[in-house]
Design a binder for these strands. Structure first.
Length: 188
DNA sequence: GGAATGATGTACT
DNA sequence: GTACATCATTCCG
């Protein structure tokens, strides 16, 4: 995946990430899925974004180079995966909200302690668990052995829905969420 | 509908 | 340094 891809405006990247295949590798094995749902988080003008009030120790990955991974811990128990996007240093990222599992299904089931394929990656913290993501992945570049991202086949038949983001209390009406219509692997 | 669960940020002293 | 509210969620009842 080209760095120029992540340099595009964040709302463009969020939409174009749909259909891309994200692969995660570690000593347990390899897992992969097609991205079917994303949310964009912008910079200082987006009250729902972690970067809204500027750089902190927690969100510093968001201010790194486009293509950097931003992992954060929330609700006392969950991790979520983002890809840094847009102009460098502005603090924008795309939250990966759901994947359609493609590879390493048994490993995903083991990590999630769930059997149903529709309950493996249908939410941001679920997919982080299914891919074996930890806080050690925060701030690393996407193009290392640990992760890779490649464009999927052109999904011209898939209709993309634009809708408000989920689970936020600030700027809750902004239409920064993107997902494939009629796809059963989108979050609920 | 509501609990779980703890790091983080902010506003104080 | 201390206190307190908040939280880009998930799971169970």
């Amino acid at each position: 995946m080209n760095r120029d891809f992540f340099l595009q405006p964040t709302l463009v990247v969020a939409r174009q990430l749909l259909g891309c295949v994200l692969t995660s590798r570690n000593n347990e094995g390899e897992t992969a899925g097609q991205i079917v749902e994303t949310e964009a988080y912008l910079g200082s003008n987006d009250p729902a974004s972690h970067s809204h009030r500027g750089l902190t120790k927690r969100n510093q990955a968001m201010f790194g180079q486009p293509g950097t991974i931003y992992v954060y811990f929330t609700y006392g128990m969950h991790l979520c995966l983002n890809l840094v996007t847009g102009s460098p240093g502005v603090g924008e990222a795309v939250l990966i909200r759901a994947l359609e599992p493609l590879q390493g299904l048994s490993l995903m089931r083991h990590r999630r302690r769930r059997e149903d394929i529709h309950d493996l990656c249908s939410g941001p913290a679920k997919l982080a668990q299914a891919l074996g993501i930890t806080l050690a992945d925060n701030s690393v570049s996407l193009n290392e052995d640990r992760f890779s991202l490649k464009l999927g086949e052109v999904q011209s038949s898939q209709k993309i829905i634009t809708a408000p983001r989920i689970g936020i209390r600030q700027a809750e009406k902004l239409p920064y969420r993107f997902y494939y219509a009629n796809n059963s692997f989108v979050s609920k």
